[in-house]
């Protein structure tokens, strides 16, 4: 294991992780709330078609997400940009905060960058001690779904090519 807690994360996510790690415990809670508040609403193509979203079944709050791997002509699958869309109720601010971090840190990253993000990256935000380790599993599950969607979509595309 690398000593750098942000190793393998795309730059935007690594920067957020560093911000959290350097903040006081109280400020970390506030930051998490703010990321949740800044989570953008779903665009109409998803808001009007919730069946297109995948549910992340977790013990606590319902979370739905969609992952879009871009289709720029002449760009390799690995280098395509990834779009992320989340739907989380406002009554679930912790889950919204997780989604907000992943959105701010991974939306627009390349497929290769997302696939290279370590599964346990969420454990490196120094959040476990302020909201409890058990609750961090939700964020690990979200990242795992995102990575799986990206690899499935790339595999489907490469098979078809």
């Amino acid at each position: 294991m690398s000593a750098d807690p942000t190793a393998g994360m795309p730059p935007a996510l690594a920067e957020i992780a560093t911000d959290f790690r350097e903040a006081s415990a109280k400020d970390r809670v506030q930051l998490l709330l703010e990321f949740g508040e800044d989570l953008p609403d779903l665009p109409p193509r998803y808001a009007d078609a919730p069946e297109k979203l995948e549910q992340v079944h977790e013990c606590q709050s319902p979370l739905f997400l969609a992952v879009e791997v871009g289709a720029q002509p002449g760009v390799r699958s690995d280098d395509q940009r990834v779009g992320l869309f989340f739907s989380v109720p406002r009554e679930a601010p912790t889950t919204r905060g997780f989604a907000g971090i992943l959105h701010a840190g991974l939306d627009g990253a390349s497929a290769a960058e997302i696939l290279a993000t370590p599964e346990h990256a969420p454990m490196n935000f120094a959040l476990a001690e302020v909201i409890s380790p058990l609750r961090m599993r939700g964020m690990v599950a979200m990242l795992s779904r995102i990575k799986r969607q990206v690899s499935l979509q790339i595999a489907a595309r490469d098979d078809g090519a």
């Binding site: 809670v29 998490l32 709050s61 009554e91 601010p93 912790t94 905060g97 909201i131 409890s132």
Partner: peptide, 22 residues
């Protein structure tokens, strides 16, 4: 609450938080 941040989003005036896990 179940959600540990719900209190921070707004609570009954004068109330303090008691989290089951923390």
């Amino acid at each position: 609450d179940e959600d540990v941040l719900l209190y921070e989003t707004g609570h009954i005036p004068g109330a303090l938080k008691l989290d089951w896990q923390q």
